[in-house]
Design a protein around this nucleic acid. Structure first.
Lengths: 118, 118
DNA sequence: TAATAACGTGACCATCTGGTCACGTCAAGA
DNA sequence: TCTTGACGTGACCAGATGGTCACGTTATTA
């Protein structure tokens, strides 16, 4: 059952597209600026990725003269977190509860929840 | 450039696979139990999805007699949150500052982003 | 106006992906 | 033992995806 965030998930599935979003975190960029950031891809390749991101509403564009400015839209990422990742977050914190002594030693946010002794 | 979490992203890109993970949140399930949850798919279709999830380490399996028990592993989801979503979270909270009133309205069903520490 | 720089479109192709099926293996119970 | 039920493997197919290119349009600037 594809939900309405499916386009977003599909867009995020590609490493190049995630890299583009990473670049846009520091601020809007023109298409050529983005293209130059990926020397191993052609202009069209990058443009296609931008288009996919645009259809997922992860990137918004506005034309400025003869160039196009692409800016990041964080809302869909937030939605994915709220509606999906968050529910699993509850689960991994309850895991922490189960192995509480461990968690309190590790100090919580430490990336060492590897222990699953059940 | 595909990072080591690429398999996880790719696995999450499919709505059926996300649905499987959703089912596993309530506890481990045998393969046939999962198959029965998706009447519109054949057994092999579901099994292929499980295999993809297994390769991404999102699902762990153990054999019990002639049946196989599939259980959820939240660690990769947590990693994705920590290494990727979290960085955008900073961005959307600064956005929140900028359009604060809007954010407080829209923040309804959100599990209140309590984790903001780095 | 002419040249160039920035972007868009459509066609095209190889590979990946989601799905099916035929057939085979292994374990439990009559 | 023989049958049945649960799962696995490999082949196969249609459609999606990631990538290229030739060519066209629009806007700046000399």
């Amino acid at each position: 059952m594809p939900d309405e965030l499916d386009l977003v998930w599909k867009a995020l599935a590609d490493p190049t597209r995630r890299a583009i979003l990473d670049r846009l975190r520091s601020g809007p960029k023109t298409t050529t600026e983005l293209v130059e950031a990926f020397p191993n891809l052609s202009r069209f390749g990058v443009m296609k990725h931008i288009e996919v991101l645009r259809e997922a509403d992860l990137v918004q564009t506005r034309d400025e003269g003869r160039q196009r400015v692409n800016s990041l839209n964080v809302v869909p990422i937030r939605r994915i977190y709220e509606r999906w990742v968050g529910r699993f977050e509850e689960l991994w914190s309850s895991h922490l509860l189960r192995v509480k002594e461990d968690a309190e030693q590790a100090g919580g946010p430490a990336p060492s929840p590897r222990r699953r002794r059940d």
